[in-house]
């Protein structure tokens, strides 16, 4: 008997629905909780809180206010410092983790373990420890808290990248006369640039927009950009708050564009150093 492939296909077709339908729930979520708020922020930035009219005054208010700009500067500095310290601490840790295979899993677990504790509880406990030790809360404690919170986000991508580097490359380097340090500088480090870039992305971008950590660990002395946006909104200053959110968004987009660029350029011969 002849097969009837055509009818079989159409029969399946009638009862199935397009596979992309599985993406609909998330697309709906995206629309309601990301696109709509972004559009609202954009609109709010151009609306006068008092009169409800279109205006550019919110921009003028923010950019002429030196305190606001100083807070922005502070945030960037703290973000850069946190990222730098995370990289300095995280790289050697990730490197060691990728070398020692036997005890590897337990060590990775130890690094991830703090993330299982709620971040607010973690930060409040840190504060309690500092107070108990008599450490004065300020810039130092804020940066400590930030590094503590974001270090795992640096280690994990670095660990993944470093573990994936084929051992043959380091062997080839030592075969060609490179000693341990030279092998690291000329093969392992450049080959781990993608991990460095994604580590930086995962730490720097959240740190410049973070709030609460600075507030809790500095007794409200140090105000970061995230905190001041929160304050503006809680004071009902939606217009200026929205402008600040847009400025923040611009920084996030800019830094991820720069990092993306770095990552893409790398295989063509350049490196971070």
């Amino acid at each position: 008997m002849r097969k009837k492939p055509v009818s079989a296909v159409s029969k399946v077709g009638r009862f199935s629905f397009p596979r992309k339908a599985f993406a609909f729930p998330y697309m709906l979520f995206l629309l309601v909780f990301i696109i709509v708020p972004l559009v609202m922020v954009l609109i709010n930035a151009f609306i006068d809180d008092a009169t409800g009219r279109l205006t550019l005054r919110n921009f003028v208010t923010f950019f002429s206010d030196s305190t606001g700009l100083r807070v922005l500067g502070n945030s960037l500095v703290i973000g850069l410092l946190t990222t730098g310290i995370c990289l300095l601490l995280g790289y050697p840790a990730a490197y060691l983790l990728s070398r020692h295979h036997a005890s590897n899993r337990i060590l990775v677990l130890l690094f991830i373990l703090p993330m299982w504790v709620n971040f607010l509880i973690r930060t409040l406990s840190t504060k309690a420890i500092f107070l108990a030790l008599g450490v004065e809360l300020g810039m130092g404690t804020v940066i400590f808290g930030m590094v503590y919170n974001y270090l795992p986000f640096m280690i994990l991508p670095l660990h993944t990248t470093l573990s994936d580097i084929d051992h043959a490359y380091t062997e080839a380097a030592s075969d060609l006369g490179a000693d341990g340090v030279q092998t690291f500088l000329r093969t392992t480090l450049p080959l781990s640039v993608p991990g460095i870039v994604s580590g930086i992305t995962m730490v720097f971008i959240p740190t410049i927009s973070t709030f609460a950590i600075s507030e809790l660990l500095s007794n409200r002395q140090i105000f970061l950009f995230g905190d001041s946006i929160q304050t503006k909104f809680s004071q009902g200053l939606y217009g200026v708050g929205s402008v600040m959110s847009l400025v923040m968004l611009a920084f996030v987009l800019l830094s991820s564009a720069v990092l993306n660029r770095l990552n893409r350029d790398d295989p063509k011969g350049g490196s971070l150093l």
Binding site: D166, A173, S174, D175, A178, R186, L191, G269, S271
Partner: peptide, 29 residues
């Protein structure tokens, strides 16, 4: 250690450095 021996190896899957071009690979040693 390997780096102090005047012996060089052609590896099974070549192990050419992916972050360097042909010149960089040959000039490595």
């Amino acid at each position: 250690p390997a780096h102090q021996r005047n012996i060089n190896t052609v590896f099974q899957k070549y192990a050419l450095f992916p972050h360097l071009n042909v010149f960089g690979n040959i000039a490595f040693g």
